[in-house]
């Protein structure tokens, strides 16, 4: 009896230890859920506080955003249009260049070229955004001023263009993943029918990978909408309702930066605006992320 007790003892201890470890691991995994809960709760709480002082109708119908002026108006549209404008400019750069780069790397380039080029492009994605902001303001804007003399020092054009360059590797790498996931049998069948390389790439492989490609574009757009430092540095701090890319504007993220830089007392209305704007931003990116997720699920071609 005593012998079995002794034998059982360490294994009991061991089982308890195993149990303890498992609890720790579950706790670590649960942190990700707590993070999401924290994001949603803090955004929702303060946004409710905001809407108890400002009507949601004004927020959605007013065309001016002047919460830091003496005559305060709380219309989100100037911030939304600026965000969409800079992001759209970025997409005009990132989508064609990224997509063509992806098709090239997946269907035309040799393994050697692919192995060299991909890490090089990833350097672009690894540059901190504050550096891109600096680049847009001090290099791209003066350069563009040669062609557009009326360009303001702060404008959405150069911010958008630089953001587009930043997103090229993002679109390229995700789209390339989608393209190279298309099974070789499709390529071989198309070549067997006498297609040229171009026809295989553009008419067979790209349509087959379209769900992944669209998802990568949507994710890049969501990235652009949430991008902060480039627009905060190079696009200006002037909330106005315009689609003119040469004048200073203010995106949702720039507004959050501007308020954060000042001393905003907790519980003041301008503190709540941070969260109202943040919540709007979160909804935009959330919808885009869900859409890209759904896109991949729904339209994925399944090959065996």
């Amino acid at each position: 009896m005593a012998v079995t007790e002794l034998r059982r003892q360490p294994s009991l201890l061991r089982a308890a230890f195993e149990r303890f470890i498992q609890v720790l691991l579950v706790f670590a995994a649960a942190i990700s859920i707590l993070t999401t809960a924290g994001i949603v709760f803090s955004l929702v709480f303060e946004t409710i506080a905001f809407f108890s002082e400002v009507s949601i109708v004004e927020f959605l119908t007013e065309t001016e955003w002047t919460p830091l002026f003496s005559i305060k108006k709380y219309g989100i549209w100037p911030l939304v249009t600026a965000t969409v404008l800079t992001s759209a400019i970025a997409m005009m750069v990132a989508v064609p260049l990224g997509l063509i780069a992806a098709i090239f790397l997946s269907e035309f380039a040799s393994d050697n070229i692919r192995r060299t080029v991909k890490p090089l492009l990833e350097i672009l994605a690894g540059i901190p955004t504050v550096v891109y902001g600096y680049f847009a303001l001090t290099t791209i804007t003066p350069f563009l001023k040669n062609f557009i003399p009326t360009l303001s020092i702060f404008n959405s054009l150069s911010a958008g263009l630089v953001m587009g360059v930043m997103l090229i590797p993002f679109v390229a790498s995700l789209s390339e993943d989608a393209l190279s996931a298309v099974p070789n049998s499709l390529r071989e069948a198309a070549y067997g029918l006498g297609s040229t390389r171009f026809e295989v790439a553009v008419r067979v492989i790209t349509p087959a990978a379209i769900s992944g490609i669209v998802a990568s574009i949507v994710l890049a757009f969501s990235r652009a909408i949430g991008e902060t430092m480039i627009v905060a540095i190079a696009a200006g701090q002037n909330p106005r309702l315009t689609f003119d890319p040469t004048v200073p504007v203010m995106t949702m993220t720039s507004y959050i930066v501007q308020v954060s830089l000042g001393d905003t007392p907790y519980g003041s209305l301008s503190y709540y605006t941070l969260y109202a704007v943040g919540f709007t931003l979160f909804i935009f990116t959330f919808i885009l992320n869900i859409f890209s997720y759904w896109m991949v699920r729904k339209f994925r071609e399944v090959y065996d």
Partner: peptide, 22 residues
């Protein structure tokens, strides 16, 4: 947890700032 992690990876970093502030 799994769906959540892929969602979190796509949340803009400034939103994390708002979370941290609060």
């Amino acid at each position: 947890v799994e769906i959540n992690i892929s969602n979190l990876a796509a949340v803009p970093s400034i939103i994390y700032g708002l979370l941290g502030l609060q």
